[in-house]
Design a protein around this nucleic acid. Structure first.
Lengths: 343, 343
DNA sequence: GTGAAAGCGCTAACAC
DNA sequence: GTGTTAGCGCTTTCAC
């Protein structure tokens, strides 16, 4: 191979201008050729594309983004309000995140993940949006940030939130009908023979509050005593202790437990067993989410299924529509009972 | 409030230049003031910072990144080689991802997540690196991409990989000593009375292959028959079927099962039970990872613990050092036996 | 301590 | 079809 050519081949080509020089055309043409957009002579294009490949050149997305005023990146924020630690490792959110990554990749977007602690950074949402790094944002879980999200929603359209839907809210939300889910759960517990119901989990977060409220609806309608709230944290270690205490105290006074999540339900199952209560004979138990673990407990967990895949799809679909200028309604997904062995 | 001032207050300030105009200084000064770096008159700085706050201004990170040739973003790639689906929802990787997000946030970096399917995009790593969007990359899991990662490692230093360490490899890796973990597992099974061992899971991925090899080491050393490989997929549904079949076929010919992950072990436990085999009396069982589920099965799962938090910390620490120009050794973490009830 | 000016790498008018 | 030019919003010399 002649020296000159060899040297050319070895030239590092970092910019579109380098490539243009090699191809003997102008940077503009290279840009057009690589973008595959406007008309470029087929031969020229081929030559440029070839050259780009052999040199492993890819256009700098930062520069392109700056110029075009769009980044090709969607931000995904997970606010950790109620229960700072552990929430991000919560299986449900993690599964949703995985599916979101899939959906966004499919649509040609990258995903920028940001875990935020609103208490120590009240400005989290504006900062994320204002960073200039993202074309839109998906917020996973309203946590205790409902109002802050509402505030932002008026001035920023490229946002969709996973969470609970509230009459008249201004931000676009995708989520399960938690209240209905709560009703289904309570109905199932009652159908399985329970009369004195309890709700296991923190009722602070809106989603959980709605699940709790749904259960109360049914208890009231059936003339049963109000559902007892048994608050816990979300982190497995603390929750286990708290559940043990709850069962020790309230144990025989209740015969049906609606756990806010499957994770909590699984923990609860272990504790019930440890304290000699049989499930479902002494106590009926129902979870929420229908995570893989629900099939793996013994006895297998009856639960209220959320369609996570549909949720992820909906979040991305709505966001892209909003980016395209459409205005969109919120999407409320129906929960579904998955009846197994615990209720 | 006088009209003029009102108008000023309402002016949208999107750029540093807008802000400069308001403050009556030059863009350069605003930049300096906001960056908090070089010397700016305290009064001027205060005024600028105030103005920025009241107008909710934040500098555009794309522009800043372009100019400074660094983005403040670390890419996290999850290659899905062996078993395309489900791997991203694999609890272990997800937990690691959550912890990585924490660590990176702490260090002031953002995290860009990319799920890649090497089979359909052989160029995934170069593309990610060459995108200009990230300052460095963390690869979670070598999958079947060991060689490709090796190829890249020579020319790109800002990369750290979670995975298995191989003598003489060129890329910087953080991971558990899987072979040692395999040895611990086999030793434990044998100590619990097993003599005919099996390894449950795909032995294709390097991590798993090393675990398997570790178990073989011990079987050989103890003069036992070779460890039987019972391949499965990672997705719970397929795995369950496959496990059921394995047990039906090999069931009584083996008395100790080393599962490649806790998830598989939990599934296995269910199937063993379904087929009337008692654990640990008929069959001893040991998992790998020590995920939360290991404590929740009945009986609770004996397993080999990986220190995920240390892993996440190590990955970020090493990557930042490499970014700073240091050259770093790989980090091999010791696994630890968590003895519970299944072996 | 601050302003002016150049330019990061790319794209999109606008010429020709 | 292709080249030229003018920025996208920011940082950073270099003057003063």
């Amino acid at each position: 191979m002649p020296g000159g050519q060899d040297k050319l081949t070895r030239t590092t080509v970092r910019t579109i201008t380098d490539l243009a020089r090699l191809a003997g055309v102008s940077p503009g043409t290279v840009s057009r050729a690589l973008a595959g957009k406007s008309l470029v002579n087929a031969r020229t294009r081929e030559k440029i594309v070839d050259l780009a490949r052999t040199h492993g050149f890819r256009p700098n997305q930062m520069a392109s983004g700056l110029r075009r005023q769009k980044t090709g990146v969607i931000g995904v924020a997970i606010p950790l309000g109620h229960d700072v630690r552990q929430q991000i490792s919560d299986s449900f959110f993690m599964t949703l995140l995985g599916l979101l990554a899939d959906e966004l990749t499919d649509k040609g977007y990258d995903l920028m993940l940001r875990r935020v602690v609103p208490d120590s950074d009240p400005d989290w949402l504006d900062r994320f949006i204002g960073s200039g790094m993202i074309d839109g944002v998906i917020v996973i879980g309203q946590s205790d940030q409902f109002d802050r999200i509402e505030d932002v929603a008026d001035g920023y359209r490229a946002m969709v939130v996973w969470g609970n839907h509230q009459e008249g809210q201004r931000h676009c939300v995708v989520g399960t009908d938690n209240r209905l889910g709560g009703r289904l759960a309570a109905e199932r517990l009652i159908a399985a023979g329970a009369r004195r119901l309890a709700f296991l989990g923190d009722t602070g977060p809106m989603e959980f509050a709605a699940r709790f409220a749904g259960a109360q609806d049914i208890a009231a309608r059936m003339g049963l005593p109000p559902v007892l709230a048994l608050p816990t944290h979300l982190s497995p270690d603390r929750a286990s202790e708290e559940i043990a205490r709850h069962i020790a105290q309230a144990g025989r006074a209740i015969d049906g437990i609606f756990a806010a999540t499957d994770t909590l339900a699984a923990l609860c199952l272990t504790q019930l067993r440890a304290q000699g209560l049989r499930v479902p004979d002494d106590v009926r138990l129902i979870g929420f989410d229908d995570l893989p673990i629900a099939r793996q407990t013994i006895p297998a967990l009856t639960t209220v299924r959320q369609d996570i895949a549909a949720g992820a799809h909906g979040l991305v679909d709505l966001l892209l529509r909003r980016l395209a200028g459409e205005s969109t309604e919120s999407l409320v997904l129906p929960p579904e009972l998955a009846i197994r062995e615990t209720a």
